[in-house]
Design a protein around this nucleic acid. Structure first.
Lengths: 191, 191, 191, 191
DNA sequence: TATGAATGAGACTTCATTCAT
DNA sequence: TATGAATGAAGTCTCATTCAT
């Protein structure tokens, strides 16, 4: 059952995604949800809190998408592919949310900014550890784990753009494999 | 000679970088520039126009930094390294500008958003063409040029973060070589 | 039998007394009455009307307390004492109502303000006539009846404060006699 | 020179006095001051702060009016008369301020309420001490100082009403003497 | 040219009141 | 009759922009 609260969240995602936090008016969101302006305040205490809830729920959703917990015995390539594919899926299925999470960070509120930044760091930390471990195990060559993390994070951070802004509709699994191949093997011809 | 106009641009960069577009007040900028609030309007017609000028000037500056025109006879690796090093230099020397150009994109104004998006596409187009050509010439293996562009664009798009937010002070040339190596050769051990 | 209407009035007294008219929310009153917000409107047409009813009922109650009708044959001192004692009782037994009637007059509504002001004038008129008559009869010396009324009205108007705000728990009858003594004989030593 | 700040305070006094705190709109005050709505905020940070400043300035003004510092060698009767006359003057010359200070206390803000209540207590404390001392010196008979304070405070607290609401224009000095006489000698004929 | 006091449109939020259940 | 979710009018406050000096 879709509760009114969910309808408001949905409308919030749509409007925040289209207009950004500061240009989104509470009235816009109310109209998008087909309700009165005051009703939003029955469910959320403020514009900021509504946005925070959207961010949090979005991030939870995202984390499910890119979770690799069940695949912990896989090799590094498989894991990178899984994460990439999950990210790809998420961007394709939650275009508006992607835009909010990956772009319109803006400086809305210091606390929120810090929260979001820390979430990002945390995620990167996990990835970096994974890289480091794979280097130790010999699965990867002696590279700078920080830079590799930056590279993988970067490519993921860009993917939403062609998907959301240009309607790119690639097949997630195979594209993720291609990206993984690039990351693993680079772009020079094998000798 | 530093004109008053330049002082305002400088102050704008500082304040927009610190607070983001919407939280930056014209008064803040005036104070930072050491002038009166009204004076800004002698040189810029509006807050948005001031921001646009900063973006444009910033992008011009950036393009000089990453320009590879004088090195058109170089191989693809050298070019990627040059672009990366230029990007790195730019982020290190213009931290505030970097933050504005690479993060706080927000949805300030549709026209500006489109303009910025197109600049980005343009830049990516050049890179993509370069990749494609290098594939044709056999310098690179048969990879998806779009994905490679995404990867290079992504890594560059991320670099400002550790530099600006965490004060990372790596040496530009050698780090750019490391990144180039990652892009070119991937991360698996060479057999 | 305590009707639901009475429960609402009771709750209104409590909440209006604690928070004042403007800070009292209909929801607060509903909660205090243990009913739903909408139910208040089954018995009272608006917040203002509820307040008016409370004022009116409060004033009726007050008038009973200070009524001296049954004691019309008494002398002026006895009457002043009776009124004072009645007032004292009222403040002690209906602290919340006292606060509403004697303090939180605020300018809620012009009509209500006028109504309340007239009630007061009316009461003072009766007192003033009584004074005047007592002067004529020689029971009181040649004083300005208006000023005496002001004095007696003033002292009564203040009494609620120590009682309600500071929990002063004096014995009504004897205190009323002391006050009457002050009014009658002043404060200088008798020669 | 009348500053704009003073104009706003003046307008605030007028509007708060006429409509009470909650019914006074910032726009009303702006219109009364002949300025734009936003201008008020150049001088006062909020509606509440404007009101507080009015209260404080009003109370300062009032305290000057009723100050008896220069007359400390006078007897108790003279002092009561001076205070009463000062109060009378104040009510006559600052009708709107009187209304704000002596009536529309409402429950605007807990802090303000407490502040005002304490000011009142403080003033009463001084008066009560004076009474007590005069009893000790034999100038007054053995009366309850608290009740006398209540009486004097009460009469003063009422005086604004006929002056402000009914336009009573008595002569301050002589009226103050009459009131003092009532307080000192009571209302019964001297035997 | 430079200023900053003044402005008012605009956005968030509150809460008395309504009405479908 | 009783309810409380929904509403939207209304009010405070912000800040980009103007303009008289």
């Amino acid at each position: 059952m879709v509760t009114k609260r969910d309808m408001i969240l949905e409308a919030g995602i749509k409007v925040f995604s289209q207009k950004g936090y500061h240009h989104a008016k509470m009235e816009d969101i109310a109209v998008a949800a087909g309700i009165g302006k005051g009703t939003i305040y029955e469910y959320f205490s403020s514009k900021l809190q509504l946005f925070q809830e959207i961010m949090e729920a979005g991030l939870r959703q995202y984390q499910e998408s890119v979770s690799t917990e069940k695949i912990s015995q896989m090799g590094i390539a498989e894991r990178i592919q899984k994460i990439t594919a999950g990210h790809f899926y998420f961007c394709q299925n939650y275009k508006e949310l992607s835009r909010i999470l990956f772009w319109d960070t803006d400086i809305i509120d210091d606390e929120l900014k810090d929260w979001f930044y820390n979430k990002r760091k945390e995620k990167e930390g996990v990835l970096e550890d994974l890289i480091r471990e794979s280097i130790r195990s010999g699965e990867l060559r002696e590279v700078d784990a920080k830079l590799v993390t930056l590279m993988i994070g970067g490519i993921l951070g860009q993917i939403w753009m062609p998907i959301v802004l240009e309607g790119w509709e690639a097949e997630a699994e195979s594209t993720a494999w291609q990206i993984t191949d690039l990351i693993m093997n680079g772009i020079v011809p094998s000798t």
